[in-house]
């Protein structure tokens, strides 16, 4: 369960940054992306952990990529069929879950060495950490940039700052949140 706070994939290890920045402009997108990535993470962890004694060491990376790509294709087809609006918004970032370093990283570092049950728990932990990080960034960006939360306007007197919806705002938000987490860690150490 280290993946949620102590080893949060986004804020501490800086993995999976592209989807984090790109889909965090609203809470809905962030939750959709988080769920999709968590599903792929847990399923690929299960398959890789089950086959960890069969996969030869020197072709392990292509093997992992194939397993991950299979589950991403499943997610793509399900999204297209049941959540067409979300699919339209996330666009190219759904197939790009394949190259999300969090998933390949967990496969390589954890699932290839541990049994199925532990791998599932690890998948849930890292997936939740990723989703929470996405939601936190999306919370800031949607609130400041659009004046709403979950598409519901918060207050009529508030004039939204457009910059937070734009790409620049994503970089600023993540940079400032990172600085905040660094500060908290420094202070807890002392």
């Amino acid at each position: 369960m280290d993946g949620i706070f102590k080893n949060n994939p986004v804020f501490i290890i800086l993995l999976g940054l592209c989807p984090t920045l790109a889909v965090s402009s609203s809470l809905k997108n962030a939750l959709g992306m988080g769920c999709a990535a968590t599903f792929v993470l847990i399923s690929s962890n299960i398959i890789i952990s089950l086959n960890r004694k069969i996969i030869p060491a020197n072709v392990r990376i292509p093997a992992y990529i194939t397993v991950i790509a299979t589950f991403v294709t499943i997610v793509e087809l399900v999204m297209k069929a049941y959540f067409p609006a979300l699919n339209e918004k996330l666009g190219i970032f759904i197939p790009l879950i394949v190259v999300n370093c969090i998933i390949l990283g967990r496969a390589e570092a954890f699932a290839s060495k541990n049994n199925v049950l532990d791998s599932i728990l690890d998948g849930i932990g890292s997936g939740t950490g990723f989703t929470l990080a996405l939601l936190l960034i999306a919370f800031v960006r949607e609130l400041l940039g659009n004046g709403s939360l979950w598409d519901i306007p918060v207050s009529s007197g508030f004039k939204p700052m457009l910059v937070f919806i734009l790409p620049a705002g994503a970089f600023f938000t993540l940079g400032i949140l990172l600085a905040f987490f660094n500060y908290m860690r420094e202070r807890n150490k002392l």
Partner: peptide, 23 residues
């Protein structure tokens, strides 16, 4: 530069400024 901002946090803020410029 304040300690918590050094490293990746500052890099992101610079990237944000570059992104504004490219806009």
């Amino acid at each position: 530069i304040p300690k918590p901002l050094r490293g990746s946090a500052l890099t992101f803020i610079i990237a944000g400024l570059l992104s504004l410029a490219f806009m």
